[in-house]
């Protein structure tokens, strides 16, 4: 079983490595209309597949699947709890604490699915694939950096790293979508001006995410530790 899962994951990574450059080449050659949205979406889908294949084929207990679903649901729905602190959106922070507790793969799945489901409720937009990849990668990197690190309980380090990733990874990828929607002539200034116009929004998002992380990291870590002891979930993350 494990080897089959590994094979499929490697296969999907290879698929990405072959098809993504191919898409780029083909679109560079044949797309004279300067509309790179579609190739970008194709590349995103290709890059997301390995993570999903890995998750699909790993053995996962029912309690673990419940916890992942619940964290995604919390990431989407807990906005209701934040009604009295407008501007504060908890999604990214919840994805990050989940990723820290359960590792990069679960982190990616939590991030990308929470964006998918959020759009499922409010209607899909052109941003959906970009948001999925962006939030997925934030989860992935946080899992990679912190799951096995001793800094995972350090409030300050976690919230600063979280804010930076939120700004740099999620913000950048989401803004790429705006670039593809707005820009027809890819000069440095046109692209930069779009990214620059995104900075205030992304900065607020990043800072609030950092603040939320600062407040919730400790209690959440306690709760996860308790679950792990009580129900033996996510004992080995690979």
């Amino acid at each position: 079983m494990q080897s089959k899962s590994a094979r499929l994951t490697i296969l999907s990574v290879l698929l990405f490595l072959v098809l993504a450059p191919l898409t780029l080449m083909l679109s560079a050659k044949y797309l004279d209309s300067r509309s790179y949205y579609i190739p970008a979406v194709i590349i995103i889908l290709l890059s997301v597949i390995p993570f999903f294949v890995f998750f699909e084929n790993r053995k996962i207990k029912s309690s673990e699947i419940v916890i992942v679903s619940m964290m995604i649901a919390l990431a989407v729905a807990s906005r209701a709890v934040f009604a009295f602190v407008p501007q504060f959106k908890p999604t990214c922070a919840i994805v990050i604490v989940t990723a820290i507790a359960f590792g990069p793969n679960v982190g990616f799945v939590t991030g990308s699915l929470s964006m998918l489901v959020s759009n499922l409720i409010f209607g899909q937009g052109m941003f959906t694939p970009f948001q999925m990849l962006g939030m997925g990668l934030v989860g992935f990197f946080c899992g990679l950096i912190f799951t096995k690190s001793r800094y995972r309980t350090d409030k300050l380090i976690v919230s600063i790293t979280g804010a930076l990733l939120c700004f740099g990874v999620y913000g950048l990828i989401a803004d790429t979508c705006s670039v593809l929607m707005f820009v027809t002539d890819y000069t440095r200034e046109s692209v930069m001006s779009i990214f620059a116009s995104g900075i205030p929004y992304n900065a607020i998002h990043a800072v609030t995410t950092g603040i939320i992380l600062f407040f919730i990291n400790k209690p959440m870590t306690d709760k996860f530790t308790r679950l792990r002891v009580k129900y033996g979930v996510f004992e080995i993350e690979n």
Binding site: F52, E56, V66, S69, I72, L74, V109, L113, V117
Partner: peptide
């Protein structure tokens, strides 16, 4: 494409109204 992820999505949609 991925039955397990589809189940996760379905469960998420179950939990969201509950959490609200």
């Amino acid at each position: 494409v991925s039955p397990k992820l589809a189940l996760v999505v379905s469960m998420v949609l179950r939990f969201i109204p509950l959490i609200r």
